[in-house]
Amino acid sequence: MSFHDFIFYAFSAVLVAAAIGVITSRNPVHAALLLVLAFFTSSGLWIQLQAEFLAITLVLVYVGAVMVLFLFVVMMLDINLVKLREGFWSYLPLGAVVGVLLALEMGAVLWTFYSRGVIEAPALPANYSNTRELGRLLYTDYVYPFEIAAVILLVAIVAAIALTLRTRKTSKYVDPAWQVKARSQDRVRIVKMQSENRQD
């Protein structure tokens, strides 16, 4: 077993253990943290497969952004675990059938794949960088769809703000600019009235 294989098995073992931890842990915060570990180790595996761009994106996007958001959500929400676990036994038979079918299908795919023999990846030149290759493709051949995708994101931002940003009528917020501009005449209105005669 070469050092390369050793690293692979070590990472895989950590990955499988972390993944099992995600679904078995009782504390949702622990589950989220274990998922971070699983993402991190699988990005390590990707680096071994020379897919460094995917590995970096996985860490940056999923670990850095999505999972942190997840953690916040989990901490903010008051999830009642007892209620979530209700009906576990009634869902178990269906869940078990689906699970077994999934496992069988995965096995079938792997079996047909390996029965054909493993195809060796072509050797790449030493200075090959798939980040550079992806970037080159995105900014040359696919620059038009790439830009349109960017415009779609801009539409999403505009739409989200247009639909959600508005002042609530019940809000107690006071605009400081208006507050500074207020004059004493606006606060108090002096009304002159004739005094009434006393009527006895």
């Binding site: 769809p145 349109i148 779609i152 739409a159």
Partner: peptide
């Protein structure tokens, strides 16, 4: 690719426009 992206750009803008009257 471009046909689909154009369609999505159109549709997403339309969805938002309909909901504009909050």
């Amino acid at each position: 690719l471009t046909l689909y992206l154009g369609l999505e750009l159109l549709s997403l803008s339309l969805y938002a426009m309909i909901a504009l009257q909050r």
